[in-house]
């Protein structure tokens, strides 16, 4: 029994502890409040500890994200109304594009300054909840498409589609502000 505990503790230290910060980042993306995120990760760590002797050692992050997701589902069995919307229809008709109506800047002219970041932040904040969540998971938390898909319980293609459309929405805001070329114009 003591050796079982020892091997469980060793496996936990090896597979789980290195992922604590990523889990917290992801939990922040899944919850509205830092305190909720912390509770969620604590719950996840406890569940992982109890289940570690059944874990085969392959893809620990994906395994932990599944546990985190289940813990989150248990915490909120009643989903919030804004999460019931289908986020994929919101951006459907906002494809941007149109002809080039400005001289395209060189890559060096793509201003990487405060204004650029402010427009990105504002556009990010204006995204539908589920699109914002995917952008957070990939671009802020550093998950892969596959890891985000596991976490959200959706196909990888859905993650990709939400992410790409969300970034395109941000990009179109930048184009409207003159901070990126408008799509569909220019030349080689």
């Amino acid at each position: 029994m003591a050796s079982l505990d020892a091997s469980r503790q060793a496996a936990f230290a090896k597979f789980v502890l290195p992922e604590v910060e990523v889990l917290y980042r992801v939990a922040l993306s899944m919850t509205a409040q830092p305190a909720d995120a912390e509770d969620l990760v604590q719950d996840t760590l406890l569940r992982a500890y109890r289940a570690i002797d059944r874990f085969d050692g392959a893809h620990p992050r994906a395994w932990l994200l599944t546990i985190l997701r289940n813990a989150e589902v248990n915490r909120h069995r009643r989903r919030r109304p804004d999460l019931l919307d289908d986020p994929d229809v919101h951006l459907e008709h906002d494809t941007g594009g149109g002809p080039f109506d400005m001289v395209p800047p060189t890559p060096e002219e793509l201003v990487v300054g405060r204004e650029f970041d402010e427009v990105v932040d504002a556009a990010f904040g204006a995204l539908p909840v589920k699109h914002r969540q995917v952008v957070r998971l990939i671009d802020i938390d550093g998950l892969t498409y596959a890891e985000a898909a596991v976490l959200l319980g959706v196909p990888e293609g859905t993650v990709m589609s939400r992410l790409h459309r969300a970034r395109k929405r941000i990009r179109d805001r930048l184009a409207a502000a003159g901070l990126a070329p408008k799509q569909g114009g220019g030349g080689r």
Binding site: F12, L28, F116, V120
Partner: peptide, 28 residues
């Protein structure tokens, strides 16, 4: 550039990560 701007968007609070890491180490 969008990806770069987003990546610097938010950093988790160090003290929360430290508490969780301590909790995990305690479990381990």
């Amino acid at each position: 550039e969008i990806k770069r701007a987003l990546a610097t968007h938010e950093q988790p609070a160090d003290d929360a990560v430290a508490r969780l890491r301590a909790f995990g180490e305690h479990l381990a």
